[in-house]
């Protein structure tokens, strides 16, 4: 019981405080928080075009990053789980985990270097008469996909490893080629693991603001709106209202994930 109490106070308590704050307002002159109940912050969120755009952009990027990571993770995870020797398997797990040991900032700045006007991408593109795509949505998507890839690979790897190899043999035995086996046996069996991984990639992208600041150029995601309203504008109630958006989206996402049985894979 005490652990649950701790969770209640530290975790849900903080979230409750956030929600309450979002229902207050700020005096435009003094900058003081006025503890009067109002839905004004949420109305602004839906009424002001720029916030609506940013919300959909954030959800879109989160979905895109999730799909990219799923596509990249699958062959790696399948190789790790079913092809590699036990020794190679251990080395690959370490290799996948290794980027997580490096600081988030270092990795984000590494991609800033990659996308800079005279960075490696520009060098490779130059012979074809092309430039680096520069900082913006594209660079943000690539950087976030890179950052969250291990969180997709590991659950999918674990999920595939639990699938007995005899199922693949049985499929081949019944006349199925590799492609058919992949589509009818491997992917359906790995699906809950993909959903488990996507919870990480999706929610981490929904909340991110640092990578966007470093490689996003002028692009803003919800995280930046929260950050800017807390810092520069010092409008804590509005920041809190913006911060509830990813929470609501994630709750919806988790509810959908639950129906696939994926949460048992976590």
């Amino acid at each position: 019981m005490p652990p649950m109490l701790w969770l209640g106070v530290a975790y849900l308590g903080a979230l409750a405080a956030l929600l309450i704050t979002s229902l207050w307002t700020q005096n435009d002159f003094t900058g003081e928080i006025e503890r009067a109940w109002t839905l004004e912050n949420f109305q602004d969120l839906f009424r002001v075009d720029v916030y609506r755009t940013i919300t959909f952009r954030t959800i879109g990027i989160a979905a895109l990053v999730t799909v990219i990571d799923a596509v990249l993770a699958f062959p790696i995870a399948l190789y790790m789980a079913k092809v590699a020797s036990p020794r190679a398997q251990r080395l690959l797990v370490i290799a996948v985990l290794m980027p997580l040991w490096a600081s988030y900032l270092v990795k984000a700045y590494a991609w800033r270097g990659m996308f800079s006007a005279d960075g490696p991408i520009a060098w490779v593109a130059a012979p074809f008469g092309l430039h680096s795509p520069g900082y913006g949505l594209f660079a943000t998507t690539v950087t976030l996909s890179y950052l969250w890839l291990p969180y997709m690979i590991l659950p999918v790897y674990a999920g595939l490893e639990r699938v007995p190899s005899s199922l693949f043999e049985a499929s081949a035995d019944l006349g199925a080629g590799s492609w058919h086996t992949l589509r009818r046996v491997v992917l359906p069996m790995a699906f809950p693991a993909f959903v488990a991984g996507s919870i990480f990639t999706f929610s981490l992208t929904m909340g991110d603001y640092i990578a966007v600041k470093i490689v996003g150029g002028t692009t803003q995601l919800l995280g930046n709106v929260v950050y800017d309203n807390q810092g520069a504008a010092n409008n804590l109630p509005f920041a809190a209202a913006v911060a509830t958006v990813p929470i609501v989206v994630m709750l919806g996402y988790l509810a959908a994930a639950r129906r696939t049985g994926a949460l048992e894979q976590l």
Binding site: E169, A172, D173, A176, V185
Partner: peptide, 20 residues
């Protein structure tokens, strides 16, 4: 020949029934 191109079928020790 690979398994899928042979006119034999196997009953596996662990049955290998597709759970999905």
């Amino acid at each position: 020949r690979p398994p899928f191109a042979r006119d034999v079928n196997t009953v596996f020790q662990d049955y290998a029934i597709f759970p999905h």
